[in-house]
Design a protein around this nucleic acid. Structure first.
Lengths: 347, 347
DNA sequence: CAAATTTGCCTTACCGGTTAATTTTAGTAC
DNA sequence: GTACTAAAATTAACCGGTAAGGCAAATTTG
């Protein structure tokens, strides 16, 4: 079932002129007389002519589409990022084509393939938790595909990057837990291979050491799949909580991990913050109305999406090769709520 | 900055054969000798040849892209729907191109324009809250563009539709409130112009009348923008709650309205369910850990996305015009939690 | 009034891939 | 050696739009 369209030739035939005259008339070229232009415009309107984007793309060598690769859209943070991306792309007349990796390296590779096969003008990507090898992206980048990394970035490819201030967010979050009287703080984070993990872990470590609190290395738990499946978080929690010397606070490092941890703590019967405090990265708008209200590190996700997309379109539309790259760091915001209430208040 | 690609001509030049021979070899045509095929395949692999999708699309007249129009992605329900759509599209080698209406009719029209200008093979759409006039879609549908409606559908266009059992969900939800002892039940819903509003309102009405509970018409509040902005929900709540004869329970009709209502009730200082009970449509995975845990009507969003996409691809790939259309109704699930605890228990 | 310039449009080639029509090549038969 | 056929490859047209270059008619210039 094909959806037939009016072409430039239909207009040309109708008016008894050549196709190129129509094309030029539509572009308001100086070569075409006002009379003809008027006739063409009228006819185009009457027949509801729309230029075929594929023909234009083929001719011009661009597609006016941006590829987005994220782990999953069913996540407050990423949904907001995409929201921001779409808003900029739309205003600059680009589409966004979205694919999800579900934290799988293979899916990431095949998604990137899929997108470039489909001809995108640039790529916005947050690496999957499994990704270690960046060859699939390096090759494309070397060939000239503009790429902007956001959220989970890499040093191995020189291009623009947009991240939140993960280090500072983690540092301040940890400090707030310490100031609230917690000492045995555990950290549940994503795979050690993604950039945000290091940044957040380092912020956590620094806050601990500055306060002379020895860090029990058993208290740092990695979720290799970024909490994609419940089991890995459940395992981490069980290991942490079913031991004699268990932590009194949890600092969780990603949206999915934070909300899942909250759910699991409920299910396991832990009272927050009495049995254990919780503070984590999350962008859920429901933090205030969770039980208990959830202390969180908020990232400006919408702005991240906007900024990354602006930079990408900048790269795409740049007349000359870009050699100076920016790494934009957006501020995070630590918001203390009841899930990390000071120990004195409740104990 | 353009990203040069290997074309069929590069292979032809390399092997000293014609472009069409290469094309045919890649398609494993009987016209080409095994020897040549092997050489072409080897060369294509070596040069990492990828056919230019725009050239193929131009020739074949399709784009292997599906357009998605939703109100906003920053919403549990829609994020899950898109997740389902993407999964099917990807497996069948289509892209999804997403745009958001933010509940605006003008944006819906311009998004649909934008998408069809960009050449999509089919459209998946959930109407905006503002949409009353369907001309923009009727025109396209008449021209042969395959469309599948999901969630917010219309009777004015004959095609496949996928919805949740909104009527039954609302009916059961209302009944559960009544069984829990609530009598003064108010309903906060979206614009009266969208299909889901009627269905849900009717379910609500039936449950009320079957239980011989007169319905105070002041207790039905419409949010013309579907809760896009807080203000309209705030206004509805103020009107409902700042009156001498106020409701003892709220039944909210959409994801955004439900979660926003919960937030606002908190902010206004109402205790749930003691001061007022709450039960609403929402797909948040956090329902269990909200304060209080939130009774909800859950829709199989992922399945809705999957089903709608399967049907759309069915339409697109159908050899003959489709004249029999299906309206798939997926079951909703009412899950009772603390926000609508029986009156006797807590009063 | 012829030459020079401008105006307005047409012809043609191209983007990359596909395919119908055609030609070349190789092989077989007589 | 000619005739015929099958196999293998080429040429050319096409998808729809764009743009360089060409050309005839109209207008300006000396």
């Amino acid at each position: 079932m094909n959806f037939e369209a009016v072409t430039i030739k239909d207009i040309a035939r109708e008016l008894g002129i050549s196709a190129s005259a129509v094309s030029k008339a539509l572009k308001d070229s100086y070569e075409i007389s006002e009379k003809t232009k008027k006739a063409v415009l009228e006819c185009a309107k009457r027949l509801n002519y729309r230029p075929n984007p594929m023909a234009q793309s083929l001719k011009r060598g661009n597609s006016k589409s941006l590829g987005i690769v994220i782990s999953t859209i069913d996540n407050n943070f990423f949904a907001q990022v995409i929201n921001g991306m779409e808003s900029v792309a739309y205003s600059k007349n680009y589409n966004v084509i979205m694919t999800q990796t579900h934290e799988s390296y293979d899916l990431e590779v095949s998604n990137v393939q899929h997108l470039t096969i489909r001809a995108i003008d640039g790529l916005l990507i947050s690496l999957s938790n499994e990704t270690r090898d960046l060859d699939h992206l390096k090759k494309l980048h070397d060939k000239g595909l503009p790429i902007v990394f956001f959220d989970r970035v890499t040093d191995e490819i020189e291009t623009h990057k947009v991240i939140a201030d993960n280090f500072k967010g983690a540092y301040e979050a940890t400090n707030s837990l310490i100031n609230a009287g917690y000492r045995k703080i555990a950290h549940i984070t994503s795979s050690p291979h993604v950039s945000i993990t290091d940044d957040r872990l380092n912020g956590f470590r620094l806050a601990m050491s500055e306060n002379n609190i020895p860090l029990n290395e058993q208290f740092v738990k990695y979720c290799l799949h970024g909490g994609r499946d419940l089991n890995e978080i459940e395992k981490a929690l069980t290991e942490l909580l079913c031991s004699p010397d268990r932590p009194d606070a949890l600092f969780t490092a990603s949206d999915r991990i934070t909300t899942t941890t909250l759910s699991l703590l409920h299910k396991m019967g832990f009272k927050i913050p009495d049995d254990i405090a919780l503070l984590g990265f999350t962008n859920t708008s429901l933090a205030d109305v969770l039980n208990p209200s959830l202390s969180s590190v908020y990232q400006p996700a919408f702005e991240m999406g906007k900024k990354a997309t602006e930079m990408l379109i900048g790269l795409i539309e740049s007349k000359r090769p870009v050699t100076e790259f920016e790494k934009v760091v957006l501020p995070t915001e630590v918001i203390i709520r009841d899930s990390s209430k000071p120990v004195l208040v409740h104990k």
